[in-house]
Amino acid sequence: MFELRLVQGSLLKKVLESIKDLVNDANFDCSSTGFSLQAMDSSHVALVALLLRSEGFEHYRCDRNLTMGMNLANMAKMLKCAGNDDIITIKADDGTDTVTFMFESPSQDKISDFEMKLMDIDSEHLGIPEAEYEAIIRMPSAEFARICRDLSSIGDTVVISVTKEGVRFSARGDIGAANIVCRQNATVDKPEDATIIEMQEPVTLTFALRYMNSFTKATPLAEQVTISMSSDLPVVVEYKVAGMGYIRYYLAPKIEE
């Protein structure tokens, strides 16, 4: 059987909110390592990889590796029924085609369980090689979300350019053009407000803002976002999940023909 218990159940609610708009159906892989997911968006342009390590849960039992296919919109509907302070337990018995979500209020005076049907999903698992990135930007996640939102009112794509001056986000459209430059700023009172740019080589890549905006749904999970870029490689936009793992989005760059 498989069982996990997460006292900070709101984390799981936030994780679902950050992937459900990008992916419709996905296989969750349960193993002794943890609870993970890898899924592509329907147009195969973006990929999302989630890992929640087993040590991060208050209780984690996985007798044998298990794949649970779930419709993420339905899963999000069920997790929405959990209170923000609720403890969430996910349970699945071997050989059944359902998963149970149990929600306990902090004072244990309300206990709910929701059973959801699992589905068979034929999904392609991709091998993601470890890459050396030419530029790595760490910045406040809310700032990145704001930039993506602001630029999407100007154009459909963002050009992200890292030089020794800093990182430039540019968009162009029918009404005009916009450039937002963020400089390295490590001298802040709180580390989560810092912008750190590690650059081996200057790099410039173009991405669809629709996807970037979708990735920023993960902003409530982490104060900082890490953006890793190399020429001719997908960008990686990473949000840490409270010391227990991460959610990483990979987006293929747009190329000029």
């Binding site: 592509m40 147009s43 195969h44 342009v45 973006a46 990929l47 392609e124 698992h125 991709l126 091998g127 993601i128 090689p129 794509t157 173009t206 669809a208 490689l233 997908p234 990979y250 987006l251 293929a252 760059p253 747009k254 190329i255 000029e256 023909e257």
Partner: peptide
């Protein structure tokens, strides 16, 4: 014309 590359072309299939 811009062309979006597919993620499958970057990563190896398992």
């Amino acid at each position: 014309v811009n062309q979006q590359q597919q993620i499958t072309s970057f990563f190896s299939k398992k």
